[in-house]
């Protein structure tokens, strides 16, 4: 609580502001949590794609495969080229890359996602810490009020 807060009115005003700030932090936290989940999923997808590319390295061209068409249904297909991959670069554009370039792109993308994940987690912790501080101030104020009320009852 600020030292400058003088009188009951000021204290109430201070805690009203604090309460609004707490709600804002709560909303921010929810939004950051959603971003963290999204970034984590994207990073995991990069790992999945990288593992698939690496697993396909040992296969021979012409190997039979199955392509998922949804709802657990597959169609037969054959790998005609195991060195060319098509990567989505956003804005509705995909680019064909050889194995090494595809891996490089995916590794770079994963790194970007992991950095974003770290930054978001830092913001999350900072906001959670700020919220804890507000909670602490509220609890302190509440116990102070309760002890004052208790004192008043005893005096009666």
């Amino acid at each position: 609580m600020s030292d400058g807060a003088s009188g009951k009115g000021d204290t109430e005003q201070y805690f009203r502001q604090l309460s609004t700030q707490y709600q804002q932090y709560k909303n921010q936290l929810e939004s950051i949590k959603q971003h963290i989940d999204m970034v984590y999923t994207s990073s995991e997808e990069c790992v999945k794609a990288l593992n698939t590319i690496e697993s396909l390295e040992s296969l021979e061209e012409g190997t039979e495969s199955m392509v998922p068409i949804g709802s657990g249904t597959y169609m037969h297909a054959q790998f005609n080229d195991l060195n060319r991959f098509v990567i989505d670069i956003g804005a509705g554009i995909s680019v064909e890359k050889n194995r090494e370039d595809a891996k490089e792109t995916l590794n770079k993308r994963k790194e970007e996602m992991d950095n974003a994940y770290e930054r978001l987690n830092e913001s999350y912790s900072q906001i959670a810490q700020n919220m804890q501080e507000i909670e602490r101030q509220f609890n302190e104020y509440q116990s102070k009020m309760q002890s004052q009320q208790g004192g008043a009852y005893r005096a009666q």
């Binding site: 098509v86 670069i89 956003g90 804005a91 509705g92 554009i93 995909s94 680019v95 064909e96």
Partner: peptide, 22 residues
């Protein structure tokens, strides 16, 4: 931002690169 990033990627590619558009 997404469009700018995709443009940046495309500009790094050789002219004969195979590209697909949705």
């Amino acid at each position: 931002k997404e469009t700018e990033k995709a443009l940046e990627e495309l500009n790094k590619l050789p002219e004969d690169a195979t590209v697909y558009r949705m």
